[in-house]
Amino acid sequence: MSKSERPNPLFRNLNAKIASIPMILTASVIFVGGTVWTVFYSFTNSKLLPRLNFVGLDQYYRLWATPRWLISIENLLIYGAISLVFSLVIGFLLAALLDQKIRFEDTFRTIFLYPFALSFIVTGLVWQWLLNPDFGIQHVVRDLGWTSFTFDPLYNSSIVIYGISIAALWQGTGLIMCLMLAGLRGIDEDIWKAARVDGIPMWKTYLFIVIPMMRPVFITTLVIIASGIVKVYDLVVAQTSGGPGIASEVPAKYVYDYMFFAQNLGQGFAASTMMLLSVVIVIVPWAYLEFGGKKRV
């Protein structure tokens, strides 16, 4: 803290400055420079190679007139809503169950969290196999005698995004549970005692006392989930490759495909700028609430 007040700081800190060169370069060249560069070139009609031929907002008009992009956005919204709601609810419920002073807590936690160690590619491929209509869950249930049973989300374009969400939830809820469990452990034991003395039922204590007290944990979790949602890419590539047709496309895949396959860099830049914008929309209010609020205290 007080380091900057020591005498002759400029000279003394030379080593620190040298040590920080990678950080300074990364922050300024890659993070700021790269972002500005991409946003800047999204106003050009770059095709195979980036060219400084400005066309104003043309790329954006074209983007929002492309069915594939609209489907991507719609999928992202559905996927995002499902991820947010279900991972928060399931994560919290599991954490609450594990918080009941149970035996084998570590075992259960290890089981709930292990999918998080797996990559999205592995997750996607396992669930592709489980949801395979000819061999997977549908086939097994039909073999049990219920021959009209249909459960083929990955082959039905109207519900494919839900099939992807199932895999995403399997992979990610363990993490949310861990964060929630840590939050629950941070609640003072006296709160529980007081609630019990007052005869408040357990579910009411959770709903009206504990959850409001865990507001910071929920906000942190929310930001973590939200920034993960926008980035969803590998899971879709592994599970469906965007299919059937273009039914499970997502924005990150749109960006990649336009930059590296369709040789339409301008579209890719415009789409990635829209992704950036969506993150900014999430992050800025959060930063304002979180840090703006704290400053006043």
Binding site: F31, P50, L265
Partner: peptide, 28 residues
């Protein structure tokens, strides 16, 4: 060994963790 301006770069770095990688892929 905090030096002047170090925190600015640090904040940029942390904010950068939230930005979708897609926007930095091509410049790299």
């Amino acid at each position: 060994w905090r030096f002047k301006g170090a925190d600015t770069f640090f904040v940029i770095l942390i904010v950068g963790a939230f930005i979708p990688y897609q926007i930095m892929i091509y410049p790299i």
